[in-house]
Lab assay of single mutants.
Amino acid sequence: MDSLLMNRRKFLYQFKNVRWAKGRRETYLCYVVKRRDSATSFSLDFGYLRNKNGCHVELLFLRYISDWDLDPGRCYRVTWFTSWSPCYDCARHVADFLRGNPNLSLRIFTARLYFCEDRKAEPEGLRRLHRAGVQIAIMTFKDYFYCWNTFVENHERTFKAWEGLHENSVRLSRQLRRILLPLYEVDDLRDAFRTLGL
């Protein structure tokens, strides 16, 4: 685990949702873990991680939370803000982990979509996460503002959007929607068949 708060310049560089993210070879993951008790929730931990020694950050987080003694009788909500969406292998590990821990839910807000040039399996990884109940969305100004005030050593500076933040968020949201769209259509068809008694 690194220091509790991320350096301001590092956050702006790593999380910037630019179309061509040249040189950004690491994934950063800011997280919040909450325990839900009926209508209220309690923050248990927050911080950030990054890839280390060739190990992807998603797997580092799974190792980290596996060391906790999570009460199977309580519900936990984990929220990630990531600089890149998970690769196919990490998505598979996360989905398997969630299946083994049904009392834990995960939301992922990502700055950019990761696509490995040689495999093109990453969209299927995102669909697999979605099927496992993970809520996946692209970061918007509101999410960047929250991260800036929660995870960044900002020295009381106000978060300022860079040129193109909104447009890139919209573009990436549409792309993510197209990736997940087949799932929505299949769910709609299943509901229609059930309604018709087929």
Rank of each mutant, 00 (worst) to 15 (best):
C116S: 04
D118V: 02
R119Y: 11
L113P: 01
A121R: 13
E122C: 11
C116I: 09
A121M: 14
F115P: 00
D118Q: 03
P123R: 15
A121F: 09
P123C: 10
E122V: 00
K120P: 04
A121C: 08
F115Y: 15
Y114I: 02
F115W: 15
E117T: 14
A121D: 09
D118K: 02
C116H: 05
P123T: 05
R119A: 11
E122T: 07
D118P: 15
A121K: 12
A121Q: 12
P123L: 09
L113C: 04
P123Q: 13
R119Q: 11
L113Q: 05
E122Q: 14
L113R: 10
R119H: 14
D118T: 04
E117C: 15
F115Q: 09
E122M: 03
Y114R: 09
E117I: 12
A121P: 15
R119N: 14
K120A: 08
E117N: 13
Y114K: 00
E117M: 12
K120E: 10
E117P: 05
E117K: 04
F115G: 04
R119D: 13
Y114T: 04
D118L: 14
F115V: 04
P123H: 08
A121S: 10
F115H: 15
E117G: 10
P123M: 11
E122S: 08
P123A: 09
D118A: 13
P123Y: 05
E117A: 10
F115A: 02
L113G: 10
E117Q: 12
C116N: 05
D118N: 13
Y114A: 03
F115L: 07
E122R: 01
E117Y: 06
Y114G: 06
C116P: 05
K120W: 14
L113D: 02
P123W: 02
K120T: 07
E122D: 00
A121T: 03
E117V: 12
C116W: 07
C116R: 07
R119G: 15
C116K: 07
A121E: 07
D118S: 03
K120M: 10
C116F: 13
P123E: 06
P123F: 01
R119I: 07
A121V: 06
F115K: 14
P123D: 03
E122K: 00
L113F: 14
R119M: 10
L113E: 11
Y114C: 03
E122A: 12
F115D: 02
E122H: 11
K120N: 12
A121H: 09
K120I: 02
L113N: 01
F115N: 08
A121Y: 08
L113H: 05
Y114H: 01
C116Y: 14
C116V: 15
C116G: 10
C116D: 00
D118H: 13
K120H: 13
L113W: 02
F115E: 04
E117R: 06
A121G: 07
K120F: 15
R119F: 10
C116E: 01
Y114F: 04
E117H: 10
D118G: 03
F115S: 03
C116L: 08
Y114P: 08
E122Y: 05
Y114N: 00
A121N: 12
R119S: 12
P123N: 07
D118W: 00
E122N: 15
F115T: 01
K120S: 09
A121I: 02
D118E: 06
L113A: 07
L113M: 01
K120R: 15
R119T: 11
K120Q: 09
K120V: 06
F115C: 08
P123I: 04
E122F: 08
D118M: 13
R119E: 11
L113T: 02
C116M: 08
E117D: 14
L113I: 02
L113Y: 04
D118Y: 08
K120Y: 15
R119L: 09
Y114Q: 01
L113V: 09
D118C: 03
Y114E: 00
E117F: 08
E117W: 03
K120L: 07
C116Q: 00
L113S: 12
K120D: 06
F115M: 13
Y114W: 05
D118F: 02
A121L: 11
A121W: 10
Y114S: 03
F115I: 00
Y114D: 12
C116A: 13
R119C: 11
E122W: 01
F115R: 09
Y114L: 01
E122G: 14
P123K: 04
E122I: 00
E122P: 06
E122L: 03
P123S: 06
K120C: 13
Y114V: 01
E117L: 07
R119V: 08
L113K: 05
P123V: 06
R119P: 05
Y114M: 00
R119W: 11
P123G: 05
R119K: 11
E117S: 12
C116T: 06
K120G: 06
D118I: 01
D118R: 14
